[in-house]
Simulated assay, not measured.
Amino acid sequence: MAEAALETVPAQIADHPAIASRARKLGLKASETLLDRSYHHAAMKGLPESWKRGRPDIVHFALMEALATPLFTSGDLDVYVHTYGNKIITVAGGLRIPKSYFRFEGVMASLFRDRTVKSDDGKKLLEMHDGTLEELVHDIEAERVVGLSSSGVQLSAEQVVAKNNTDRCVFVIGAFPKGHFSEKTTQLFSCTYSIHDSGLEAHVVIARLLYDCERLARM
């Protein structure tokens, strides 16, 4: 997931009444709360690219979809989240993401604060570090980087998977509410596809792609 609308409240709006009210309810500092348009709409009006930010629920839905697949549970899928503010989240194999959004919100707030989330027995479940999408692609030694965008060449999910059947293919899905990838992101793509004639939500794109990845693996 790239340019994900997942971040903590920026310092320039931390004193806004809407931010302070939400932070008090959660028992957190304003800077430790997730930026969320559902609660912070009034405060976000002056933020750069505000239309692309403040939707952690998109990441929640997308992670639930990806981590529940046989492809992930069998260890054949690696999942990463690149955020709007250039943070990289690495998801440990076998992780089960909370189905409750409020529990997910708490886990993400802890991750931003501590940079790691561990199980009771000390296993790292989620890790976060500063980094760009370009650095992540380099670090994981991707053979192909495939962008999914409504502005891409239209093919079915089955065709996209078949055309990019390599061991280290990275599918990049935008986890933001509106607009398109930045130019820095699109420059990384080997190719860009659209799997439907209208825009699809991130979790739907993930579901369709991973189903066809699994089907190809069984052939």
Rank of each mutant, 00 (worst) to 15 (best):
P10K: 05
M64A: 00
F102R: 15
C191I: 06
L126M: 06
C213K: 10
A23Y: 01
R37E: 15
D130R: 14
T83R: 01
L35P: 08
M219H: 08
T73H: 09
P70L: 12
I140Y: 09
A66E: 02
L47T: 12
F104L: 03
H180L: 10
M64Y: 01
S110R: 12
M1L: 07
A11E: 15
H180A: 14
D57C: 09
L35N: 10
F72R: 03
C213E: 04
L26E: 01
L188R: 08
A62P: 00
V107L: 13
K87N: 13
D139V: 01
E134R: 14
G147T: 14
H180F: 11
A30Q: 09
E7Y: 01
Y39G: 03
A30K: 01
H196M: 09
F181D: 12
G122K: 02
S182L: 10
A20D: 07
V146F: 13
T132L: 04
S182M: 05
S149H: 04
S150V: 12
E158Q: 12
G75T: 06
R96I: 00
A2Y: 02
I13G: 03
D120Y: 03
Q159C: 04
C169H: 02
P17A: 11
V79C: 06
R55N: 10
H40I: 06
V79D: 05
E127L: 14
N164Q: 10
A175C: 12
G94W: 04
A5K: 05
L67W: 10
H41C: 04
R168A: 07
A18R: 15
D197W: 09
M128R: 14
A62F: 06
L34C: 07
R22I: 03
S110I: 00
E105G: 01
F189R: 09
S190A: 11
L200K: 10
K29S: 11
V91M: 06
V59A: 05
C169M: 09
L67T: 11
I173Y: 02
A2Q: 02
E183I: 13
A43L: 05
V137Y: 11
T192L: 06
A4V: 02
K118Y: 08
G179A: 08
S190C: 12
C213Q: 07
K45G: 08
I206C: 01
